[in-house]
Design a protein around this nucleic acid. Structure first.
Lengths: 335, 335
DNA sequence: CTGAAAGCGCTTACAG
DNA sequence: CTGAAAGCGCTTACAG
């Protein structure tokens, strides 16, 4: 089956290609094409099964109506939910989404960014990782619109949509202390990432505000690349070395799940004294035997939606917007 | 910053654009460009920060090096893991992935397929839903390579990668019966989908093979669009109406989660008698208070990888392959 | 070995 | 109102 082009329609109808283009792009009226002719073209297009070639259109107009999305790991439920929300909002606005996972590897980020630029994406939505500052700066130079979502850099000018990591974490710990819990350990991941730094700082400052001194031995960090093993080691060290440990607060939902698994294997369940708390939620958590006492629920849907709206705004704008959107963390507790 | 094109490099070096193109596409040797010239071009390209315009390339060559992926719901962990595996394998082969969710709505499938065709994807990987036969047939007519993954149609010629739904389900029920459990209910979703039909048939035939008569009242179906409420109703009906019910077998991982939640709320825990079983797994099922007794674990990684390999093979092939790949379901039980 | 030229399918100023 | 033509950036036969 031969591909039908604008030329075929024009020839069959004995009109110019320009006319067909106008009609197919809804500019018939604007270009004062007669209603009769408009209908004729539309009917013929349908009859022949015409489909626009968006590659050609993109080359000609310089606009691809595509957004490139880089997440840390699409198989992680936080990011897949974020991707869903971004996909829906983008489609609603006539944009497609190309995606890829960086796996917290800045080299992969940079490869993805390059591939997406070669594809002429109109803008990028990026969950940035350590080292991405360099690539982000290149986007500035090239004047390619982008939005950072979930991840950001404190000292970098960028359109940003994030949750309030600092205040959210502070509030979680505050609530725990309000429940009379004082010996609280904290497990982080890739702690050098700014959003994780903020969560740690929230933990520290909430302790301080309540007259509890910070102990470095209560804080552990695991690495993305070795998350399962690292979490096991971290939890075991906390349980074995910290006297009177009451609760372990995990820096994201995945750590909470992994950590809880370790606790269960160690037979250190709620009953035996060690509670958990989580920045980040997951549908499963309520089904667990050891439900985290206090959970921070990220507004994933709104984050994705706002990220798309912001990137579209930036795409349309001729000046750099530098907007920062910070969404509050929702907090729930059991019992 | 002006976009650098092949023309800029050619002019600066005083050579033809063809030469630059050859070098940038690794055809220097083939086209007998001198090593010296090759180096000169490469250095200049780097110096100017040249990036190929893949839109132009795609228009000219008719190949976009892009695969379109349609899943039922990217926020579902089964599909997000599948997407990850597809993404990795595609990137490894120099292909990008554009994706979208159909939400089990054939109209959305068709829109996505159209958008992807307009974008000149080289091939499609589709988790098909009810009604997609029509669009799939159009792909045949248009000779656009595609692979069905996870989902398929019995009476449709298509390259397919699926898990063995029938045998997997049969084996799960067989194992349950082997544990002395006889009163087994089954909860399905969108049961008219072929892969779900196969799971139901496996359940039925395993009962029959063990001399247990099939009771329609033990089987429930929920709809994708109303999954939470439907599951609640289904589980409640089973618990309230079926005497001596021993176990509820859920047709996928998500149903298992939702159903277990309902059971918990009804205070019908394992202890009180009703067990669960699941076609489909999730990393954190082991953390549940009521771990499913027997779980079927889909080989998601291999499915994605094989789907990509098959679509690439079909893209390169001039004839329709009609390959069917059926992967076995892995089964685990607790205790 | 190298250069000039056509053409992928589209949009858009321009001329009439 | 309509048509002829240029050009987006690239690749590739073709001529030399």
């Amino acid at each position: 089956m031969k591909k039908i082009t604008i030329k075929d329609i024009a020839e069959e109808l004995g009109v110019s290609r320009a006319l067909v283009s106008f009609v197919m792009n809804g500019k018939a009226e604007e270009m004062r094409v007669s209603r009769v002719m408009e209908e004729k073209v539309k009917r013929k297009a349908k009859e022949l099964g015409y489909m626009a070639n968006r590659t050609a259109k993109a080359l000609r107009t310089g606009k691809s109506n595509t957004i490139g999305l880089i997440v840390a790991d699409i198989s992680n439920s936080f990011f897949s939910k974020l991707a869903k929300s971004i996909e829906i909002e983008a489609m609603k606005n006539g944009y497609d989404v190309i995606f890829g996972s960086s796996d917290e590897d800045s080299l992969k980020s940079s490869n993805l960014i390059n591939v997406f630029i070669e594809r002429n994406v109109d803008g990028l939505i990026i969950c940035a990782t350590e080292g991405d500052q360099e690539w982000v700066n290149k986007l500035h130079e090239r004047k390619i619109p982008f939005v950072l979502v979930d991840r950001f850099f404190h000292d970098l000018e960028a359109n940003t949509v994030v949750v309030d990591n600092y205040m959210g974490s502070y509030e979680i710990v505050q609530r725990l202390i309000g429940k009379g819990i004082k010996k609280i350990a904290y497990v982080s991941i890739n702690e050098w990432l700014p959003h994780m730094k903020d969560r740690l700082l929230g933990y520290k400052n909430a302790l301080k505000a309540n007259g509890i001194s910070y102990e470095a031995s209560l804080v552990k960090n695991v690495s993305f690349d070795n998350i399962v093993e690292d979490t096991e080691v971290a939890v075991k060290e906390l349980i074995n070395n910290i006297k009177d440990l009451e609760l372990i607060y995990f820096g994201n939902y995945f750590l909470t799940l992994l950590g809880t698994k370790v606790l269960r294997e160690m037979n250190k369940k709620n009953l035996s004294g060690v509670l958990t708390s989580s920045f980040g939620n997951h549908l499963f958590m309520e089904l667990m035997e050891d439900i985290p006492l206090v959970r921070g629920i990220q507004p994933i849907g709104p984050m994705g939606k706002q990220a798309v709206q912001l990137i579209l705004k930036q795409i349309k704008s001729s000046v750099f917007l530098n907007e920062k959107i910070i969404l509050p963390l929702d907090i729930v507790e059991i019992g």
